[in-house]
Design a protein around this nucleic acid. Structure first.
Lengths: 209, 209
DNA sequence: ATAAATCTTGATCAAATGGTCAAGTGCGGA
DNA sequence: TCCGCACTTGACCATTTGATCAAGATTTAT
């Protein structure tokens, strides 16, 4: 057996550097054109590497796509994970919605990448949806359910409320062209206020005047 | 000049029949795989026609795509168009949301087709967004604004409220795999109640207990 | 019935695209 | 300095895919 020291995979400076460059370019390309629509040539051109060179770091197109997906999955979940059961419900949800909205405006490409992946049946992250994501949502739904039981929130369906938060916030990234066409370039502060109003207006235990 | 009787375009029985068959198949294919991801071969296979035959009715792939988009655009707008300024605001909005949700569950493929088109910058329906859609939304936003002015609704941003309705309802079609992975196959009546609760809970002039 | 128009398709083409390879270039440690 | 290994690339290949065409089959109108 030859020196099969495969796993450790120490990375060269050039290697990790180029991988990041490639994944940055891949995010832009795949989010703009979809998995099938984005080409290796486009990615290579965008980051100034030759196609074979790009395939030296990621052997298949699929590998690039999965890598760029994985790289952003964790960040995507993070805001939800921080929901604090002990804190004020409306305050916590407000914070979560704001954080999600901030990501939407700061990283629209990432949002569109996920949207495209899920829209087409989540062929690459099906396991993730049924595993970690599902568990996290169930855990946080429990938190919300407890808030309701304690009379601190209007009775709502926690899971669907979370869906609504996702839908409304990501809308401003995924459907940005439509939003722009109808309402012009949106003012972030105004959007934030409007979204909080709509999503939280009806759930406070003591609704505002 | 040869007999240039081009415009009238009387359609044969076979012609209009096959065109419908093709567009039905194209809707399924394009909504599942996107414009770039769907192939003429797939569409041809799905509707049992040969590829050249399909290209006899639609000369380019683009023509098929645009035709299937156009065919559903009108239906998509219809529910919003019926918002009645004279009727009860919450009742009207409730009806609209319900109608939109029904379309989501009855025609998820159409929803996904639009989502994909807009997600990728609406290259084919940009004009539609800036024209008819924008005008309709502005008109209906005015209706909602009047309701607010008359004290019949909590003050909300009409345009963003409409965005929220679209986002939340279409979410159940566009992100169906995610919804399914997290909450299982959704019960329509339950979804309807949850969505109405979330979107309308905070807007009634006299909020429910 | 029959001619004209419409419809259908196997064969084929050119371009795009994912991926390979052998041959170079240059960096980094002994 | 110099050797080995990581890196880079032009040329090339095979497949997919949008599109064409000429020839044949079927429908329709007279």
């Amino acid at each position: 057996m030859p020196k099969a020291e495969a796993k450790p995979e120490r990375k060269t400076r050039i290697q990790s550097q180029n991988e990041q460059i490639i994944l940055d370019a891949a995010l832009e390309v795949f989010s703009a054109y979809g998995y099938r629509g984005g080409t290796i040539d486009q990615i290579a051109a965008r980051c100034g590497l030759s196609k074979p060179n790009l395939l030296y770091y990621f052997r298949r197109k699929d590998d690039i796509y999965e890598a760029v997906l994985e790289r952003t999955l964790a960040d995507w979940l993070e805001p939800l994970r921080t929901l604090d059961p002990a804190a004020d419900p409306v305050g916590e949800l407000s914070r979560y919605i704001t954080a999600k909205l901030d990501m939407t405006f700061e990283r629209p490409a990432a949002s569109r990448l996920f949207a495209n992946e899920i829209l087409h049946g989540a062929p690459h992250i099906g396991k993730f949806l049924q595993g970690p994501l599902r568990e996290l949502v169930e855990a946080k739904a429990l938190v919300i359910r407890r808030w309701v039981a304690e009379g601190r929130l209007h009775p709502i369906e926690p899971t669907h409320f979370i869906f609504a938060i996702w839908a409304v916030t990501q809308h401003y990234a995924d459907f940005a062209v439509q939003v722009e066409a109808i309402a012009g370039t949106p003012d972030r502060a105004r959007v934030r206020r409007a979204v909080l109003d709509i999503l939280l207006g009806g759930i406070a235990a003591n609704p505002p005047a």
